[in-house]
Computed example of a mutant assay.
Amino acid sequence: MALRENERRILAEIEHRLSADDPELAGHLTSFGEDDPTFAAERGAGGGWRPWLVCGAIALVMAGLLVVLFLATPDGAPEPAATQPPPAPVTLSP
């Protein structure tokens, strides 16, 4: 998530004040999560490959459901009625 310039300035000011007030705590917070391999991937631009994997899986499921619905629904054209042979002509005998 991108921050606005004003928010970046405020965060930099907070970080500067924290470093000045408690350098030990600031050092702990800067090194927080460096041992975790997933932390480095989450900090990278774009967030890594996991969000793309989830979006791809959702897209595949949706495409599969659309294919199933397309195959399960009738064409929409009315079926022709069963044809019956025309009735035999009636002849009257005198």
Rank of each mutant, 00 (worst) to 15 (best):
A20E: 10
I10N: 06
A41W: 04
P89H: 05
D36Y: 00
N6F: 15
G46A: 02
D21Y: 12
A77M: 12
A81I: 12
A63N: 09
T91G: 12
F32L: 07
E15L: 05
L92P: 03
E24D: 09
Q84N: 14
T91F: 09
D35V: 08
H28P: 01
D35P: 02
F70S: 10
R8F: 02
E7I: 01
A77C: 15
F39M: 06
E24R: 07
V61H: 03
A45S: 15
V90Y: 08
R17H: 11
M1W: 00
G47W: 01
E13M: 06
A72M: 12
A88M: 14
W49G: 15
E79Q: 08
A82E: 12
V68I: 14
P89T: 03
P37V: 00
T83E: 14
R8G: 02
A72E: 06
A57H: 10
L71Y: 12
V61Q: 08
R50Q: 13
P89K: 05
A26L: 01
E15A: 05
V54M: 09
S31Q: 12
D22N: 04
W49I: 15
F70P: 06
L60R: 10
L29E: 00
V61W: 07
E42Y: 11
V61Y: 06
V67W: 08
E13N: 08
A40L: 07
S93R: 15
C55D: 15
L29S: 02
E42F: 10
I14N: 03
A63S: 09
L3F: 04
S93G: 15
P85S: 10
S31P: 05
E13T: 09
V67E: 06
L25F: 01
L69P: 02
D21T: 15
G48K: 00
P94Q: 09
L25H: 03
D36H: 00
A57I: 07
G44C: 12
A88H: 14
A20N: 11
R43E: 03
